[in-house]
């Protein structure tokens, strides 16, 4: 269902959509069955003069089976859902690609995303790292491993087209992966409330072909932004962003 609204732009997007569809079919079946029976009973047993109610305790076996059989069937459905969900979960959250194309670092702070790309040498924490704010650039069809860090409060690194979401927690580095399958520019959202600028924390992910990516990298002076990022304190960012937020609201008026 989800692909009608958002393209599937990562390798595991289709898997997650599959789980969603599986659950939709299974619970949809039970929902429509129950609702159908419910409305039929309401219609069939509406009050009519001279027709008294039946006296059914529901404790006898032949009556109880009307709820115990669905009960067991639901258990079976649950097993399907659990298996599918866990498989996808292991794939997305636990297994990392063995030979990632590159590692990137994603740093959340109030209220901006900072992305550290490894630069031409493909290694993080070297002199040629490329630091960007609110724009992440990746190559299509290449597995990436990312490390999430936060400088202040909880954030959430969410890329809806990848179906990917992971909280960013101060004091922890959380590792994950993705492999984009389609080029394009999409939203990165902060999906965990992080203060008054939470609504002003959009990032963009640019998925581009290898050639475009190389061209972008070449045009980028290494460490162009690194100095700024290092000098930024949360208080300062908070202050400017706060002003931006309130100014924004006023302008909108």
């Amino acid at each position: 269902m989800i692909e009608r609204y958002l393209v599937q732009a990562s390798t595991f997007a289709a898997d997650i959509d599959f789980v969603i569809n599986l659950i939709a079919v299974l619970v949809g079946f039970w929902f429509f069955l129950t609702a159908g029976v419910f409305f039929w009973l309401l219609f069939r047993f509406r009050r009519r003069d001279g027709v008294p109610s039946e006296y059914i305790t529901g404790e006898e076996k032949e009556h109880k089976r009307f709820i115990s059989i669905p009960h067991y069937l639901i258990m079976v459905c649950d097993i399907f859902i659990i298996v599918a969900a866990i498989q996808v979960w292991v794939n997305v959250k636990q297994d990392l690609p063995e030979n990632p194309h590159a590692e990137i670092r994603v740093i959340g702070q109030q209220w901006a995303w900072t992305f550290v790309h490894p630069g031409p040498d493909g290694e993080l924490d070297t002199a040629d790292d490329i630091v960007t704010v609110e724009e992440l650039r990746v190559e299509v069809n290449q597995p990436y491993v990312f490390h999430l860090e936060s400088r202040d409060v909880l954030h959430n690194f969410s890329v809806p087209v990848f179906r990917l979401k992971q909280d960013v927690i101060p004091g922890r580095v959380i590792t994950g992966w993705f492999e984009a399958t389609k080029t394009g520019t999409h939203d990165i959202q902060c999906a965990e409330i992080c203060g008054i600028g939470h609504g002003l924390m959009p990032g963009r992910i640019v998925i581009e072909s290898a050639a475009d990516h190389a061209a972008w990298m070449a045009g980028k002076a290494p460490n162009q932004l690194a100095a700024t990022v290092r000098g930024t304190t949360v208080a300062a960012t908070g202050g400017t962003k706060l002003a931006a937020a309130s100014g924004d609201a006023l302008n909108a008026n």
Binding site: I20, V88, L164, A191
Partner: peptide
């Protein structure tokens, strides 16, 4: 279900 919650959370 953990798998679909990745998207819906």
């Amino acid at each position: 279900a953990s798998g679909s919650d990745i998207y819906f959370h």
